[in-house]
Amino acid sequence: MELRDIKSAFTTGGLSSLSISYTSLLDGYIVTVKTKSGTAHPLTTQREGKGCPRSFKSVDSAIAAIKNVGFKQVTIDL
Rank of each mutant, 00 (worst) to 15 (best):
R4G: 03
G49H: 04
K34F: 00
I66L: 06
G70L: 11
Y29M: 04
L78S: 08
A62L: 03
I6Y: 01
R54N: 03
R54G: 02
S21P: 00
V33R: 07
L15C: 13
K72N: 07
D60I: 05
Y29I: 03
T11K: 14
N68G: 15
H41W: 08
I66R: 14
S55I: 04
K67T: 05
K50H: 03
P53Q: 10
S58R: 14
L78H: 13
L18D: 06
Y29V: 02
I66M: 12
I66G: 12
A40K: 15
S24D: 08
Y22C: 09
L25W: 06
L3F: 03
I76T: 14
K34W: 00
S37G: 09
S58N: 11
G38L: 06
P53G: 11
A65P: 02
R54A: 09
S17F: 01
T32Y: 00
I30H: 05
K34A: 05
V59W: 01
C52K: 13
P53A: 10
L25D: 09
V33H: 04
A40G: 05
F10G: 06
S17R: 10
T44S: 13
S21V: 04
S8K: 13
I76P: 07
I76K: 14
P53S: 11
G28V: 05
V74K: 09
A65R: 11
A9W: 01
F71W: 12
T11Q: 13
G38R: 07
L25P: 00
G70T: 10
T35A: 15
V69I: 15
K57C: 00
K67I: 01
F71C: 14
M1H: 07
T45V: 03
G70S: 14
G28P: 06
G14Q: 07
A65K: 11
R47Y: 11
G49L: 10
T11H: 06
T32A: 08
I76F: 06
S55T: 12
I20V: 07
S37D: 15
T12F: 14
L18E: 10
P53V: 07
T11G: 08
